[in-house]
Design a protein around this nucleic acid. Structure first.
Lengths: 274, 274, 274, 274
DNA sequence: CATGAATGAGACTTCATTCAT
DNA sequence: AATGAATGAAGTCTCATTCAT
């Protein structure tokens, strides 16, 4: 009775795995983390045989061929592309595999399932959006100026990242209760941000008192809606949205823009010609 | 004497007679043309032979009669219920079958597929909404009063029909490109409605000129967003939304409410206590 | 408690059936076999009410409106059309309903199921074919002349009834074991017919002795195959088939055609130019 | 001592060691590159930990190894079996799944749908048939000898591969227009083959001129028909078919067999006694 | 006899996920 | 870490057949 003869041994982290080579590609390169040497597999086309050679000099690309980080990024990029074009349910893992030039197994190594892959995308964009808005707010002291800055930063970010915005605003809706919670949670984050500064503005006497809670959500809605429309139809252009929406929202709480803005106030017929 | 309670009553000349017809099944349903009520025959299994009885009373069954229209309605009702609870993709045809007390085949007899069943629901609600808004508008003459009335009708309708609203506003989003078109088409319908009256208001000098196109969409967004929130979380209550949102939106175009409303203007701290 | 009031009573053969009219067409005519009078139903568009009138003079079409025979024929015609175009499995009862201008129930009244409807078609054609061949055979006395006549009659009938032939030859194949038996049974019928006369011809010394059983099936196959081809592709034309096939088959058993045919024997280059 | 019989053997330098790797499942399969045999590891459920053993023998499992090619073959084998017994429409994917010991998904991984799985089978047999016939033809020089050889090869192949023949000849018929095209295309291929050599025989003066196109199809039909009959009823036996059919067809074009065949010519009463 | 809405078993197919390599 | 063949539960939809009218 024959003894099984091993063909190849590789260490992944702490786990050792052994392979019989025929299933491998013709030329795969590995470095044994135990002995520190590089190996290259070789197999003839007849497929049955395989050899192992020690390799001392291997040209190493800056980023190693198998780079977890870049793989993860490639997957996220591909997922963003597919999700934004097809929506969550119509997006097939196979399409993401094809576009990311990885494999199904690879996706499931980096993400536990389709849902979490999608949520990773949503969260990534929400984080970016929050960072941008926070930065904008920090550059102002007057509460109302902060609100205005937040508004502009929000619209500007949506405008710049059209595809992720589509995923977050459109496709994240109506995906069933699991997703809805996430979406509401993120909405809450931003609505509360506006809410806080509106309340500060009331306290500072910059605007009249009102149901700032409701107003914050109303603002969110306006921003969302116009952005979605632009994402889908390409109209109205982001610049035109900003020009009209910022003064309109500020008006809605009876806030008069500072003199430096008044001359070019959105409420003029010219604005429409953009 | 057989246990069959009743079978069928026919007038021959002046004589009324009751038959149990051999070809009849256990449960045959008839509608009395005199009183308009539905009846169901009853016969025991042994009732193979046709008998004649004089009869003057029948046992009435509760079971609904076979009626295409009512079947269609039952399906739509069940679909509304299931879609609004589970969302489009998580809704199973089997659940709709169970809830409608019909059959899979019956659903596919009345609707070509799941998608069209869903869209039928969306359209039904959109029609209702439009009807309500149009009715409200027609009762006013001043353009701005029309806008205000439309706003209130819209919120009121959403408030009254919470479940269909959920289907139309939430689940219709993110369903892939097929549905998105429909949703945008309906949005367009209502945005344009607002748009028209805003423009009239500008022409009548009631509000300043502005980019009314953008403003119409911003309004839509505010309404949508707050309604979705309410549909999901139960907050804020519709009454509170109306109280704050209507004046806020009107302010956003620099429209001053008439004197009869000013005292109770939404922009007061009290409003928040609802 | 109300008494059910009857609206209408009709006798079908021995069975009496009673109807509440609203479901009926506006004008239906019936004759009561009991009282011998004609009735006409009437209902208003609102649909709920119905009346009964005695009618003494009714214009009766030559063939009564409801004529079982013509209905059955219409169904068979439509079935032939649909089956021959789509094949058995791709033929939908609904299509046959549409083309026959009857109803599903009507088809199921005249035929127990789809299978038997199809077989009725096959048998109808098989009967026709047998009749034609028998007629042709009866006009000759010499065994070999009978064979020749049968051959020609067979090809001629296939040629004239292209659509039923398609159903019988093509679609009746590969339909599963139920149909296969029928098909083999019919084949047998015709092969045996040929067989008998071939044996007679052998006995009469007109042809050499041989395995006439195998030869009979071989002949059947030739005829079938060429006819199927013609049915599908329109080539070769029936006339050309007859001209070549008859002498070829006769040659195959070493039978020399009589002198009146020899000059125009199929085995000449000219035959090909048809 | 654990009950695990073997796990894995690896050479480190000259030392052979066996591992049970924690990550390994109960059944891992390997192929020995030395002897080319397949092995399967075995471990008990308690075997959570990695152990090392020296080892020189392994238990061999009968279970087939995961191998795309063999899976595809298993599916084709199972499909052939089921299709030939039940016919195309009565064949259930589930039966093929059961018989192939794979899964529904696996079938759909290797074939896009049921139709293409069936056609793969048809084509496979058609290729085989063509190969056999071509090989037979190549061994002769005289055109008529080629025809004769082709005829015999055809019948012999049908005879040897009864099941695929059944699929191709019987079940491929009457499957609707999609399949019919394929079937006609394949028929054409073989008819044309016969046609070419008949024409050569005419040119070589071995047989008289005639409508060789029609004759080729007539021959096809004879072969088909007799084979189908044999496939279904087991009669007449292939040997008997060959013995009678070949001379009969050759007679049909007035070809006289060489003297070495004449004594045992099919056209004798004895032939029938097979 | 005729009608057609209703039925429901069962078919094919999809696709997220697994797992041996 | 990477691969992709394999899995199978679950889904939508079809369509011959029934049956109350």
């Amino acid at each position: 009775m024959p003894t099984a003869k091993v063909a190849f041994a590789i260490f992944f982290g702490e786990t050792m795995r052994a392979y019989i080579l025929p299933a491998f590609r013709l030329t795969s390169r590995f470095r044994c983390v135990q002995c520190g040497m590089n190996y290259m597999t070789e197999s003839d086309d007849s497929g049955a045989d395989s050899k192992i050679y020690n390799i001392d000099s291997v040209t190493v690309s800056e980023k190693p061929i198998r780079d977890p980080e870049s793989t993860r990024e490639r997957i996220l990029d591909a997922a963003l592309s597919v999700f934004s074009h097809k929506g969550y349910h119509d997006a097939r893992l196979d399409e993401i595999v094809a576009e990311s030039r990885t494999s199904k197994g690879s996706i499931y190594f980096h993400f536990p399932n389709k849902e979490r892959l999608f949520l990773a995308l949503v969260e990534k964009f929400a984080d970016l959006l929050e960072r941008r808005i926070t930065e904008a707010i920090d550059q102002h002291t007057s509460p109302m100026a902060k609100v205005e800055a937040a508004l502009e930063a929000c619209l500007e970010t949506f405008g710049r990242y059209r595809r992720p915005a589509k995923v977050m605003l459109v496709h994240a809706a109506g995906l069933g209760n699991i997703f809805e919670e996430k979406r509401l949670e993120i909405n809450e984050r931003f609505a509360r941000l506006i809410h806080v500064y509106l309340d500060e503005a009331v306290a500072a006497g910059e605007i009249e008192a009102g149901d700032t809670d409701v107003i914050a959500y109303a603002w969110m809605g306006s921003i969302y809606h116009l952005t979605i429309r632009w994402v889908y139809s390409g109209e109205p252009a982001p610049a035109r949205i900003v020009r009209t929406l910022v003064p309109t929202l500020l008006h809605s709480v009876n806030y008069r823009l500072g003199p430096e803005r008044l001359p070019s106030a959105g409420h003029s017929a010219k604005a429409k010609q953009s």
